[in-house]
């Protein structure tokens, strides 16, 4: 089964997945239309910033067993077997936030959503783009990602690709950055700045 494979180290923080996700979860399905909708469509993927301001695509891992599912009071969270996705039934969700307390990744939000016909505020989380998958489409975030941080594919194939990359990455440069992005000059530079700003001050402080 294909799934979203996340390689956080390749995230450059461009947030295109965030936009693509929100559009994919809009009624209109296109960006101008999505922006006109009320309530505004919600992204289900959240790009956070690490300690050196590097990006990190944070989305539901569709854990198995899923702690959110165990914690859900009304039994609104269930697993869809075809795509192995943990989903929320918005008609059952009572917006109690018990799942927020259970999710170790902090990827569940509570919002009104254009796809929720009741207008209720409910738990909003990544649904693995099941609607798109059922139409034979890839997930929206992976379609948007241009750096391979989010890839829709077979896990085995991804592992194989990673192994090959290790073999190729012995020389410095982009091949190596793919495996060890921290050797990439910009990230090294950002780390230097953050570390410098946090240094104990010497005589320069007034």
């Amino acid at each position: 089964m294909k799934q979203v494979i996340v390689s956080p180290r390749r995230c450059v923080g461009c947030m295109q997945c965030v936009v693509a996700c929100a559009v994919a979860h809009s009624r209109s399905g296109d960006l101008p239309g999505a922006l006109a909708e009320s309530p505004r469509p919600n992204p289900r993927i959240h790009v956070g910033a690490g300690i050196y301001h590097e990006g990190f695509p944070n989305r539901c891992r569709h854990c198995n067993p899923a702690p959110c599912m165990a914690a859900c009071l009304p039994g609104a969270i269930y697993r869809e077997s075809k795509t192995d996705s943990v989903l929320v039934n918005p008609d059952v969700c009572i917006n109690c936030a018990s799942c927020a307390m259970a999710c170790p990744y902090g990827v569940i939000r509570y919002r009104p959503d254009p796809l929720i016909r009741s207008g209720n505020t409910v738990a909003i989380k990544c649904d693995n783009c099941v609607a798109r998958q059922h139409k034979g489409l890839d997930t929206a975030c992976t379609e948007a990602c241009k750096t391979g941080a989010l890839v829709f594919g077979e896990l085995d194939a991804a592992m194989k690709r990673e192994t090959e990359r290790v073999a190729r990455s012995m020389t410095p440069g982009p091949e190596a950055w793919a495996l060890h992005p921290e050797t990439e000059p910009l990230l090294a530079h950002k780390r230097a700045i953050v570390n410098m700003n946090h240094q104990e001050e010497g005589r320069s402080s007034s």
Binding site: C11, G13, V47, A49, H53
Partner: peptide
């Protein structure tokens, strides 16, 4: 604003 867009930071957009 964090994280800044890496493509833009690298001049690649």
């Amino acid at each position: 604003q964090q994280p800044h867009c890496g493509f833009c930071e690298m001049g690649l957009s």
